[in-house]
Nucleic acid binder design. Sequence first.
DNA 1: AACCCTGGCAACCGCACCTTC
DNA 2: GGAAGGTGCGGTTGCCAGGGT
Length: 341
Amino acid sequence: MGRAPCCDKANVKRGPWSPEEDAKLKAYIEQYGTGGNWIALPQKIGLRRCGKSCRLRWLNYLRPNIKHGGFSEEEDSIICSLYMNIGSRWSIIAAQLPGRTDNDIKNYWNTKLKKKLLGKQRKDQRTRAASSLRQEMNRKKENFMTTEAIHVLHSHQLQQPLAFPAVIPQQQAHDVEDQAVIIAGKLSADDQQANGNSFNNHNSLYSCDISFGEGQACENPLSMASCSQQCSPSSYYPIHGVIANSNIPCYSSFLFHELNGMEYINNFHQSDTLQSFSGTDTVNRSTITGTSPESTSWGDTNSLVYSPIVSCYEICQQPIQQSCTLEKSSYFRMQQETVLQ
DNA sequence: AACCCTGGCAACCGCACCTTC
DNA sequence: GGAAGGTGCGGTTGCCAGGGT
């Protein structure tokens, strides 16, 4: 059985408070106090409001010495610092900022400070990732080319460029850094013929970018891209992989037959806070669109700290069910490039 | 000018905890 | 001890203003 409502919702007014209501509430509380019972307060005053609503109005708006807007740099840093340490405990954070209410701080964080902070962190992170990634990938590339067999992303079913969002499992998400790897696969003669000269230079460097989105974890792109049936070495395609990181949600796009596919990538990169995606699944001849729900996990402070660097390439090396292997002699080149703005 | 989109913010909702009886 | 009522809190919703098309 549910709990009894605190008031008769049918007989209470809702929505914005009028100046008259504000004046009544303010005058009464300044003269008599709350009486320790918010539920009974509106009846005493003659307000058709819920007691909880009166309390909220008083605490967030009417009580003396309330400050609205105009957060200082110092306040920003206090909020950020406390948020990093204790998360979304707004009442505790508000207690450290005289004149500020938890609701005000919460709104300020959600609408401005979060974006401001993330923008700064991304900039810093990209700068760091650019150098560390190049070093790491150079090292891995050497190892990669000497491996006897390799797992190859593959989909011989795909006859046209395909882009779709991939989702990294949450348990992996924190391991994946903002970086990307491109793997260009061996193309069959048929493929090359079918695609004109586009694939003649299949060892060419395919550029790659990082895409950010919000709120959507990723599934292992490899499992999504790997072949679902027995495959032949002649049907490997260039693979374009994009992985973005951590708890900043990500989208991945890959399996581009040619550079024309980059237009799909561009679709993903219109902004750092991309909220939706679109592409074309030519296997099913359908348009792929989607929307990432706003993340509600900002309480997880990991979302605001740097995650260890794990490249897409490392994921590529993990054994994958249904993946294919190739002799290194039949094989191709892995190139990577990050495009860090 | 009309419409759409987005950001900001006040207010609401529901749950958990606390207090009282 | 536990039921009922009150309070506090964080997440979410919905309205509105402003900017863009």
